[in-house]
Computed example of a mutant assay.
Amino acid sequence: MKKHLLLLLTVLPLLALTGCNNDDDNKPADPVSQLPPATQTGEDTFGCLLDGMAFKPDNRPNATNCFYQFVDGDYYFVVGASNYHTNLKGITLRTERKQIFEGETYNLFEYTEGNAVGSYTYNLTNNFTSSTYTGELTITKLDFTNHIVSGTFWFDVMDENGVVHQIREGRFDMHFTT
């Protein structure tokens, strides 16, 4: 009996030290590694860094949206994601009356016809790129047969309180509707 008690007293502290499972230890320290990989196979993923923190859509239905449509002689592209974890936050990229092409990079400017634009939504207030706060959207894949669009992006926006938000390391790999 003393042998078993001695063994337990020796093993239990070791198990306690090595068997702890802290959820924070399982999360990657680098926010970029928390983003989905930059794929081009229609994985229906979206992610970026929002002010240095990983931003991904939550699990609600319609937390992501992507379409590329030809309407009344003009092209309209939208890809975006939202997350309700603390407050409604959303990141969206779009073109207004502007065709997109695989391998092309588009400057993100004002929200006007003929431009590509980026937006950050916080509590239902949209904040758009501008001539001062700009960015870039690169279309890395545009597959009309399988309706896949993939790309990378970054941009800055100023919110209604004068705070500049940095969106970096953005990537998406989505199926689009027409």
Rank of each mutant, 00 (worst) to 15 (best):
1 M>V: 13
4 H>Q: 11
5 L>R: 12
6 L>Y: 01
8 L>M: 11
11 V>L: 14
13 P>K: 04
16 A>P: 00
18 T>C: 06
21 N>G: 01
22 N>M: 03
24 D>Y: 10
26 N>H: 05
26 N>Y: 10
28 P>N: 06
29 A>Q: 13
31 P>V: 12
33 S>R: 09
36 P>R: 12
38 A>G: 04
40 Q>F: 02
41 T>H: 07
41 T>K: 15
43 E>R: 14
43 E>C: 04
43 E>K: 15
44 D>S: 12
44 D>P: 07
45 T>F: 09
48 C>H: 04
50 L>H: 09
51 D>W: 11
52 G>H: 08
53 M>C: 03
54 A>S: 13
55 F>N: 05
55 F>R: 02
56 K>W: 00
56 K>I: 15
56 K>R: 15
58 D>P: 05
59 N>P: 00
61 P>L: 10
63 A>H: 02
63 A>N: 10
63 A>Y: 00
65 N>G: 02
65 N>R: 11
66 C>D: 03
66 C>L: 04
69 Q>F: 00
70 F>C: 02
70 F>S: 10
71 V>L: 13
71 V>S: 08
71 V>R: 14
72 D>H: 09
73 G>Y: 14
76 Y>L: 08
80 G>W: 01
83 N>P: 15
84 Y>T: 07
84 Y>D: 10
84 Y>N: 13
85 H>R: 14
86 T>C: 00
86 T>N: 13
87 N>C: 01
87 N>R: 12
90 G>Q: 11
90 G>V: 10
91 I>F: 06
92 T>R: 06
93 L>Q: 05
94 R>M: 13
95 T>W: 07
97 R>N: 15
98 K>S: 07
99 Q>L: 14
99 Q>R: 15
100 I>L: 08
101 F>R: 13
103 G>H: 14
106 Y>K: 04
107 N>S: 15
110 E>M: 10
111 Y>W: 07
111 Y>K: 12
111 Y>N: 15
114 G>S: 03
114 G>Q: 08
118 G>W: 10
118 G>R: 06
119 S>D: 01
120 Y>H: 10
123 N>C: 05
126 N>E: 10
127 N>I: 10
127 N>D: 03
129 T>V: 08
130 S>D: 06
135 G>V: 04
136 E>D: 13
137 L>K: 02
137 L>H: 02
140 T>N: 07
141 K>T: 12
142 L>K: 02
145 T>E: 14
145 T>R: 04
145 T>H: 00
146 N>L: 08
147 H>S: 14
147 H>C: 06
148 I>K: 06
148 I>A: 01
148 I>H: 09
149 V>T: 11
149 V>E: 02
150 S>F: 10
150 S>K: 05
153 F>M: 07
154 W>H: 09
154 W>C: 03
157 V>H: 03
159 D>Q: 02
159 D>K: 08
160 E>N: 13
161 N>E: 14
161 N>W: 11
163 V>P: 00
163 V>I: 14
164 V>P: 01
164 V>L: 09
166 Q>M: 11
171 R>A: 05
172 F>D: 01
173 D>C: 10
174 M>E: 04
174 M>T: 01
174 M>W: 09
175 H>D: 00
175 H>L: 04
175 H>W: 09
176 F>D: 08
178 T>I: 12
